[in-house]
Design a protein around this nucleic acid. Sequence first.
DNA 1: CCATCTTCTTTCGAAATCGAAGATAAAGCG
DNA 2: CGCTTTATCTTCGATTTCGAAAGAAGATGG
Lengths: 372, 372
Amino acid sequence: MRGAQGDLLRLIAGGHAESRAELARLSGLAASSVSLRVEELIGSGLLVEEGSVSSRGGRRPRRLRVSPTAGVLAVADLGGHHARLGLLDLSGTPLVVEERPCEIALGPEATLNWIAASFDDLLATHGPAGVPLRGIAIGLPGPVDPASGRVVSPSRMPGWNNFPVAEHLGAHYDLPVLVENDANLLAVGEARAWPGCETVLVLKAGSGIGCGVIVNGVLHRGRGAAGDISHVRVSSDSSVTCSCGHLDCLEAYASGAALMSVLAEQGIAVGRPSDVVALVDDGIPEATALVRNAGRLIGEVLTVLVNFINPDAIVVGGSLSKAEPLISAIRAAVYERCLPLATRDLEIAVTRSGPDAALLGAGILLLDAVLS
Amino acid sequence: MRGAQGDLLRLIAGGHAESRAELARLSGLAASSVSLRVEELIGSGLLVEEGSVSSRGGRRPRRLRVSPTAGVLAVADLGGHHARLGLLDLSGTPLVVEERPCEIALGPEATLNWIAASFDDLLATHGPAGVPLRGIAIGLPGPVDPASGRVVSPSRMPGWNNFPVAEHLGAHYDLPVLVENDANLLAVGEARAWPGCETVLVLKAGSGIGCGVIVNGVLHRGRGAAGDISHVRVSSDSSVTCSCGHLDCLEAYASGAALMSVLAEQGIAVGRPSDVVALVDDGIPEATALVRNAGRLIGEVLTVLVNFINPDAIVVGGSLSKAEPLISAIRAAVYERCLPLATRDLEIAVTRSGPDAALLGAGILLLDAVLS
DNA sequence: CCATCTTCTTTCGAAATCGAAGATAAAGCG
DNA sequence: CGCTTTATCTTCGATTTCGAAAGAAGATGG
């Protein structure tokens, strides 16, 4: 999908525009050119006209949508012990989403082959007949080199280091394959739910701590590890050695895994980070204190970043985000310590876009790859 | 200067391109279109052809430059007790640069009127005859709201809070006026000297601590305070209250002002941050220890930012940057603590572009305003 | 219900841009 | 030195894009 046509399709698919007039405003093209290109896109079956948008005082715009028969995207978000898999249409709307158990520690080949099989399964059962698969995207809980599509020195993915994930999947499908860090996908998906916010930090507080960074509306990847805050040193009375070899990393105190291990030491057995949230909801004081302390530590780290990057919003996602004391403690730390100029219009809130945000983000990024 | 012509002129003036072929590559326009536009720009006196660039194996490109008679830019960089003032041609090349004493504490009106008078003076003595003044840019040692051109809650500029700087200067000249934080100007100027580095942190270590952030080649302003690291809390045995009211801010330990006041307590009187550097060069152990400690503290803060934003380079400028122990201590802290992925190709170095970097940065930003 | 306003969309000649092919100029090499 | 290679720059017809104006469709308001 070359040039101007691809741009227009992206604007529609991405939800930024839904009429010719909006396309003209957003793309910078003349209205007449937009009309021409849209006719062609409709002619080639990629766009459809479907009803109309409500009027803004004049003639009602005709609603444009990506054709449901134009293609599907297969997306997955891998965690340590489970995976969310989904099919999206080219507008990023989920056709089906499933969560299945999946041990990432089984290594890249087994995991990726299982994913490919699961995609085939989903396509067979839920894929609309005759609609072609157009791309694959996968989110992984570790740093990904965006250029090569390889995982680079992940701390919680044994056997994956330097494995050519994109290449391996590309052998299954002759299609665009996108491999990205899970927090980055979450950030892209979540940012869509915060219109007007150009610079956003999206925290993923699950069994690990991840963070995706949107600067001026685009995902900032850096060298593949941008947004990593899990190994920032925090001040603490005691002293813990992190899996990375350094002392007192944030992750060693405030990640879901760290909370669970402290609770286990106190004789409270929990299996997953969401169990910690349940304990907090049940008013178990040990859990609440732990979570609040985690929030404080995270908040102190965010303090530095807020002064530094001046985000418009900090969005907290991941399974721990449902624990109210976590957010309050983060808010308290940031608002107490940051510059007034930086916090004046800063929103700190939990995820708006639900459990599928990362899959939606995968769709958004993948669409760019598919339509280029 | 509208549309495509402005883009081409910017590419030449900004030093990104110096031949038609390069313009075609960078602008995305067809070579033929570039030729046409360049002819027009030469015709209107804004560009000149001047010799040729060395060959890359084929026909030698003809070097294009911005005409020296197209206009001049007046730029200034204000410190606490002095100002650097300069005139640049539209390509950003300095025609004259002077440093003059100037007390910023005299307040905005007096200071700005003095600046305007100084510009008039420079123009009269060094401005080429018949070449029009095209724009004004000023760097100030405090946060600037980019939208309004006002200073916002500056900690070291008494009387300036919320003063409409751009507006006040605009009354003197009916020209584009640009007001920006001094560290941001330094960052823009310095980034030009680091080709290939898309994301750069530029630290200004003088009597205060400032930091400009270039993300993907563009200055990141945030809400006007982006890059502020001076009020990050550092871990310390003792406890110092910063002028901002919080405890243990980086600025209270590692800024030139802080170092000077500690030295004064030890009976070593110094007047300016560069005197501290002189003491270090003379091997005075108290000064060296202080500077090394400052570097360590700064480095620990940078640690967080390096993991977070994955810069390609950290450039240290400001008068303290000439103290070798400062850089070594910063390097040690960052390389010791950051993720290998983030430090693998990270350069940490002192400024390459000399004392006029901020003025050059002012020229670069101002050019965009003038040519749009 | 009709005139008027607003907004969206299309029409059509004018202008800008492209791209392929050719002209120009220099480097590399036998 | 002359041939080949490489890169820059120009010419010119084909294509795309623009912009103003008109047409279409609904909102607004007497």
